[in-house]
Design a binder for these strands. Structure first.
Lengths: 221, 221
DNA sequence: CGAGGACTTGATACCGTTCAATACCGGTGG
DNA sequence: CCACCGGTATTGAACGGTATCAAGTCCTCG
């Protein structure tokens, strides 16, 4: 059995589990904005789906569980990304903050009425669907080393060239995202380090040393 | 090296490769409907993305390639599903018909103007995104046998209980969808047959014998 | 009847998992 | 300040599932 839901609530209130997280800190009742600590589960897979959420700031991780406890992190979200999707009025994924996050929520009924919101979500869904397509390629066809290289490139935007990337995920979370075990992820990091493609200041601080080789490994992201 | 694009054009014209498939058989020029034979590549990954397509009838497969030829089938589409998505005005996937298909195309610019179309696409994108989430779970965390069981259940709707399912995909295509090799897919079919969960009239005609066991294998679809 | 393609099955190799031991890091209390 | 502790990460050894390589079979079509 595996530890699934991390309850290191960073000191902030947790929204009323699975029901309506209506803590209106800012904004009107139909689109409240919430400030949430890191490592808080915002949504539970299987709960009734009443709201759609938008990440304003911070990072959120969506995951799904198999009955026997195997977990897959299906999406990593940043500012602008949308979650709280549903099949048959049931949330399809759990959502957990990776960092402190600001989240905007909309009532699903508002979706029908607000065409501006609809247009924004449409663009965002298209982008997220494209990312999922790439991720299917990663999960279905790439080796462990390639997956980790891809992961790091994805987290390190072109802009920040020489910067140090802070990973806000544990090896286990990265493994669940990449369809590997934490040991294999760790070995892959060590191998990338050994080859001189990355430098690990600490376990959660990476600097990409040789971006060209990384790209080649990741199949040209 | 692998055979990637299947050119068994079933006798029908192939739309002008990658450019605007404007064969207006039915409907006005801004939303032409095309009738396309089986095994025709409608869209090429990397081509400029001008249009959004909707499957009216038939089955379409979306796939992505790695530089070295490895392929992943990222989505299987049926009536109502949408494809032709893009990052940076470039098609993110290739699209190939699995059966004869009827496809509706919309100019991307029409998307901005037509809120009814937008609302329909939004609902559909949400559904497809949910399916991709499940697929990530399949690719990242399931064994070969589980993947094939999941695949068959997904293709066999609840309604058709005792019916025979006709697979319009080769073992290679199924393998590329499930992140396996064709040999492993074949072995999985044989194993399901051996266990009495399915009956194979022919290689491409399956009957699900024991739906309960299949569900258990697939992790309750 | 023969040819080609798709599928099945077998033998072996390899990559990633599993199990286990050890190292590291931050925090707490002596 | 240091010893200790819990959680996380790294590393090693053995195992196993899937890929790979290679026949051989079945089906369809000419």
């Amino acid at each position: 059995m595996r530890q699934i839901i991390d309850e290191r609530t960073g000191g902030t209130v947790r929204p009323p589990c699975g029901a309506e997280p209506h803590s209106a800190l800012h904004g009107p009742s139909h689109a409240p904005t919430m400030r949430i600590a890191a490592h808080v589960t915002v949504l539970h897979e299987g709960d009734p789906a009443r709201r759609i959420m938008e990440v304003v700031d911070g990072a959120v991780m969506l995951s799904k569980l198999l009955p026997d406890g195997r977990r897959q992190v299906v999406e990593l979200l940043g500012p602008g990304d949308v979650f709280g999707l549903a099949h048959a009025d049931i949330y399809a994924c759990s959502a957990e903050t990776l960092t402190p996050a600001t989240i905007n929520t909309h009532d699903r009924s508002a979706l029908e009425r607000d065409p501006v919101l609809g247009a924004r979500l449409l663009r965002r869904f298209e982008a997220q669907l494209c990312v999922m397509h790439s991720h299917a390629l990663v999960l279905g066809r790439m080796s462990a080393l390639e997956r980790v290289a891809f992961f790091l490139l994805r987290l390190m935007p072109e802009t920040m060239v020489g910067g140090t990337l802070h990973l806000s995920m544990t090896r286990q979370e990265i493994a669940d995202f990449l369809g590997l075990t934490l040991e294999t992820v760790s070995r892959a990091f060590s191998e990338l380090k050994r080859r001189g493609l990355v430098v690990l200041q600490r376990a959660d601080e990476v600097r990409i040393q040789d971006r060209g080789s990384m790209r080649r490994l990741a199949g040209a992201l």
